[in-house]
Computed example of a mutant assay.
Amino acid sequence: MKLIVLLIIGVILYFIARGYKTEKFENIKLDIKEKFDGDLMNHEAGLLIALMAKVAKADGQVSELEAQMLKHTFTDISQHFENSEEIREKLKEIYKKEKESFDNTILICEKLYKITKHDYAKRVKILEYLLNLAYIDQEFSQTEFMIAEDIATALQIKKADFENLVNKFENFYREQKANQALSLEKAYEILESNPTDDSNTLKKNYRKLVKQHHPDIVAGQGASEDIIEQATKKLQEINEAYELIKKSKGI
């Protein structure tokens, strides 16, 4: 399918991972859309979706981020076919069916291997894409690891390459969590609050700070333009800090 999977991997990883370094495949051009009327389970597009279904359901549930990534994938793949709407619906049907059982995972991998037998780099990129799906909720369960490892083995991915990909994702999300923790710590500092404060205390602190730094109130006190500008920036920081804390606490 004229490197369609490689293109999808580059685009989706760029938007979903938001910073995970991967190739953009800028030189790949798909000028001709494919017309396909056969069984998509004999096509690498359908086989990719089938494996995504296994990985997404590996830990027993499909997270919101996983569902979003799947939705984008259905759309992106189908757009490279003349009969795009029909293909999209078929891909969705494959996903619904294949997420119900893991029994045929190796069989699917064997079919995909036959199609990509002479393109090891593509198989590695497919595995990278599947691992990104597994990691996207920032939790990589033991079940997800086992399924990913089985897929890698069946696709005849070298153990070192598999471990290298896992380490890359581990490091990326570890760094992301660390940055998020630092941001949250700063947010509490801005809001003059503590992580143990309840929602009422946080709201009280927020309102107090808004009254202190609201540019309209500061202007009414006869402050200079510079002070008003500083108050405007401070208020923005307070609002952003409060929103981040609320999100972290599910308020």
Rank of each mutant, 00 (worst) to 15 (best):
K2D: 12
I4E: 01
G10T: 11
V11S: 09
L13P: 03
F15Q: 14
A17D: 12
G19V: 03
Y20D: 09
K21L: 00
T22E: 08
F25A: 13
N27L: 09
N27T: 08
I28K: 01
D31V: 05
D37N: 11
L40E: 02
H43D: 04
G46T: 00
I49Q: 08
I49G: 04
A53H: 10
K57M: 12
G60Y: 15
Q61G: 05
E64V: 02
L65R: 06
H72N: 14
H72P: 06
H72Q: 15
T75N: 04
T75D: 02
D76M: 14
D76P: 09
F81R: 01
E82V: 13
E82T: 12
S84G: 00
S84Q: 00
L91H: 07
S101P: 09
K111N: 11
L112G: 04
Y113Q: 07
A121E: 12
A121D: 13
K122Q: 05
K125T: 07
I126Y: 08
I126T: 11
I126S: 12
N132A: 14
N132I: 10
Y135H: 00
D137L: 12
D137T: 13
Q138F: 02
E139A: 03
F140A: 01
F140Y: 05
S141K: 04
F145T: 08
F145R: 02
F145S: 09
A148G: 08
E149L: 12
D150T: 14
I151E: 01
A152E: 04
T153P: 10
T153R: 15
T153I: 15
A154M: 11
L155A: 08
A160I: 13
L165E: 10
N167P: 05
Y173G: 11
Y173A: 12
Q176D: 06
K177N: 03
A178H: 13
S183H: 11
L184H: 09
E185W: 09
Y188R: 10
E189P: 00
S193V: 04
N194K: 07
P195Y: 10
N200T: 04
T201S: 13
K204P: 02
Y206D: 00
Q212K: 15
H214Q: 12
P215E: 03
P215Y: 05
D216M: 07
G220F: 00
A223H: 00
I228K: 11
A231H: 08
E237K: 14
E237S: 13
Y242G: 00
I245C: 01
K246Y: 11
S248E: 15
S248K: 09
